[in-house]
Structures are given as structure tokens and as C-alpha cells.
Design a protein around this nucleic acid. Structure first.
Lengths: 225, 225
DNA sequence: CGGTGTCTTTGCTTTAAGTTAAAGCGCGGG
DNA sequence: CCCGCGCTTTAACTTAAAGCAAAGACACCG
């Protein structure tokens, strides 16, 4: 069995195809590699493709007319995503997709795969479930942007992103700009918020490391914003 | 043929069921009426249902801890929507659903309908298409909240909501609070923004009516935010 | 008619967010 | 080893948004 077929088996959507259709899908895939920071597709383009990430990492980013950007999702090995035009003709991409590290994707076009999904009810259903999950995430982001101030959003980012380490120092592998993009703000705001957390003894900050000293306090900030 | 079956036929998802399954679905529906302002289901509940609006209007609203609210969608006759738990067990409602006028809905539970979708590939596919459309809308709202200031969001609301009338006076059938909920702001901000538009000769405002005098100018405001 | 409650409008205050500018640090290239 | 560039940190300033309070306007009801 090919590597691609193995990869397909690990995905709940493809795994529920009839075996013959799974082979067909494996044959229809067009595979491509992307360099670090290479764009997969730009915001606003009509892009009728479905893709599965074999390796690497692809970010979905919205960019405003001038300067600001907001990262809404990131996809890594095993994740499935699509251009809206895969489902609805002429629907433009709502985000730019950009490879953050050298990445390899397998792509399928709308025409070749539509008939396969139409005869595999179970796979269509799994795809719905996947979309429901994405919807939930979109909804959570929207809620944060609408109701939680910057400090609350940053507190959540810290908690989510540094779950693992307990009291240990964590190296800052995100720049201020990257954090700002994730919470929809600016590098300066993030810096100030970090130091305001530090003033309140919630975290310790150095140029290169964090220590989350008071997760309780941080999650309290997330709550009330 | 029953009224419900007629209604089902007008919906792209149900219309692509096998005829026998369509009858089955009609039989499985539980139908309910809601009064004006009655809640269908509250934010955060686990609600594994799919529903079709027969008549009336149902709004999807997010509410913040204190006071603020944001209306993200409204459903009227012929529209299909669902609780996330219809697709993913235990996923909570991301919005509160509330009947804005006396409304009648037909509901289906997860258990009874899952097998039907699994054997009707075409219907599952149509459901995906529908979800893609909803995603697009969610994405547009997010983008506005993140990148466009209040004035821009309000300008769009005016243009969208009063498309029909040309230069004629339009009665204000939305209160300031309702407009504020739609653009994620407050009554006061909306009022001020309206009068700032009026100062710029983009619209004319009276206590009870609007005239959109300069749609050009308004859409220009939408652009640059 | 007057009373009551909802909605609109406005001024004033407070808070959050964003912008600009100026250092400071530290790593890699020459 | 030093220099320069890019990222980080900080402070002062500006703007946008929200909150509060009070005054009208209107609509409905008894």
C-alpha cells in the first residue's frame, strides 16, 4: 500500500470511503511541496480544491487593507482543508493559506472528487462533522474578538500555547508580531500587556523566556476580559 | 402530498434525498411553534437537532457576560440550521436561537436522521455546501469585527438593510439597540455614527425615518473602514 | 387626557486601543 | 571582533470606543 493510501486511512473522511473509491482518490491526488513562507493561495482567489497536509504546517491568515493580520487557523500533518469554491462555485477564499515551514500537500479538484463524495454518504457526513468543528472554532474566535479585550485574548493565548510546561521557563518561540496576529492586535499592545501581566505577578518575562507563575490569575483574566 | 413534504422539496438538502427517505424524514419531523421572543435554545446547551423554518423568523445571537450582544444570523421560511451537537456529540450551541416573531419550526434529532444522511450521499454533499455558505458568512463577520471600525460596519448595515428604497424615506424599523447588536457595538455609538453620517451629507436622519442620499459615499466608508 | 414606559438624542467622562518614536539587545556576516 | 539589522522594550501621545446620565419625543393604555 502506498504512503498516500496510509495517510488517507488516518483521516476520518477518507477512511469512510469505499475501498475502491479510496484507491481512486489516491490516484487522483496531485501532490506538491511548498517552501517556508510560500503562499499556497491568496485571499480572494477562487480555488476549488480540497487538500490534506502530509507534512509541515500551513497557516490560514486574514489580512486587512493595511498592515494588520489575523491568523485564524493552522493545519498540520493529517489535517484536511479546502477552498470554499470546492463546495460553492465562485466563492472566493476567505483567508490566505501560507506554508510556515517546508510542507507537502495532496490536492484534489472539485470536478474530480464531487462524484466520489456523492456516492459515499458516510464520507460526506464525516466532512460535515469536520466542518462543524471548524465552525465551532470560527465561532470561538468571533466571540473573543467581539467581547474580550486584548489582555484577555492574550492571556488565553499564553495558556493555550504553553499548556505543557508547568512552572518551568519556556522559550519564547513566538515573536511579538506573531502573537499580535493571533489575537488581532499589534506588537506594541502585546508587549505592554505582557509587562502588565508581569507587574501583576501573573507571569515572568525575559527577553527570551516566559514563566507562567499564576495560571489561575490568567484564566481569571480570560473570563472577565 | 403534505405541506411539510412540499416545504422539504423546496430545500436543496432534502430535495436530494431518495423519495422514500424524504417521506421518512417528513414522518420523523417534530413540529413546534414559538412565540415572539421565545428562546428556541440557549447558548452553551448541547442540542443535537436539525431544523427547518416553516414560517416566522429566528435570530442567532451571541451574548457576552454582561450586556453586549451580537447577532450573527437570522433564519426565515425555508432556511435550515442545526445545533453543533447534531454533528458532534457534546458540542455546545455557539449562539442562542430566539424567535423574533411567532414562528413554526420542524425539528429532527441526531439519532433519527444520521442513518438517512449516511445513505444519501447527495444530501450530505448539499449539507456541506450549505455549511460552506455559513462559513463564508461567519468569515465575513469576523473580518469586519477585526478590521473595520464601527462607522464602516454601520455603513454596510445601512446599505445591506435598505437596498430596495432608492432616494425615498425609509421607516426606521430597527431600534438603535438592534442595529448595535448587528454590528457589535452600543446604542450610543450607533446614534453618534448616524449623526456623523448626516453631518457628512451621506444620509438624512429623523426620529423615525432615513434617507440614503449618498450610497457612493457610504460604500466608500465601508471600504477603508 | 395624563401617565408610563420605551426609544432617541446629546453631552460629558472614562477606558481601551493604536501610533509614533526612541532606545536597547543580540545574533550573524564580513 | 565589530557592525548593522531586526526584534524587543518602553514611554509619550492620539484616537476610537464605551459608559453614564439626563432630557426629549413618542406611542400606547387606561
Amino acid at each position: 500500500m502506498t504512503d498516500l493510501k496510509n495517510l488517507l486511512h488516518t483521516n476520518s473522511v477518507f477512511a469512510s470511503l469505499f475501498p475502491s473509491d479510496l484507491s481512486e482518490v489516491a490516484r487522483l491526488a496531485s501532490s506538491r511541496s511548498y517552501n517556508k513562507n510560500e503562499k499556497v493561495i491568496l485571499y480572494g482567489e477562487v480555488w476549488p480544491y480540497l487538500f490534506l497536509v502530509e507534512s509541515g504546517r500551513v497557516d490560514a491568515v486574514k489580512e486587512s487593507g493595511e498592515g494588520r493580520s489575523l491568523m485564524v487557523a493552522t493545519f498540520s500533518a493529517g489535517d484536511l482543508f479546502w477552498g470554499l469554491a470546492f463546495f460553492q462555485e465562485n466563492a472566493p477564499m476567505p483567508v490566505t493559506l501560507e506554508a510556515r515551514e517546508p510542507s507537502r500537500l495532496h490536492l484534489w479538484s472539485r470536478e474530480t472528487t464531487t462524484p466520489i463524495f456523492e456516492r459515499n454518504g458516510r464520507a460526506g457526513w464525516e466532512l460535515c462533522r469536520l466542518m462543524a468543528g471548524r465552525m465551532q472554532r470560527a465561532s470561538a474566535i468571533l466571540e473573543e474578538m467581539a467581547f474580550h479585550p486584548v489582555a484577555g485574548r492574550l492571556a488565553r493565548l499564553l495558556l493555550d500555547h504553553f499548556e505543557q510546561a508547568g512552572d518551568a521557563a519556556i522559550s519564547r518561540h513566538l515573536t511579538l508580531d506573531e502573537m499580535a496576529a493571533r489575537i488581532g492586535s499589534t506588537r506594541e499592545m502585546v508587549c505592554r500587556a505582557l509587562y502588565s501581566f508581569s507587574d501583576k505577578k501573573l507571569i515572568e518575562v525575559t527577553r527570551t523566556e516566559f514563566v507562567l507563575t499564576d495560571r489561575e490569575g490568567l484564566s481569571h483574566l480570560v473570563e472577565r476580559g
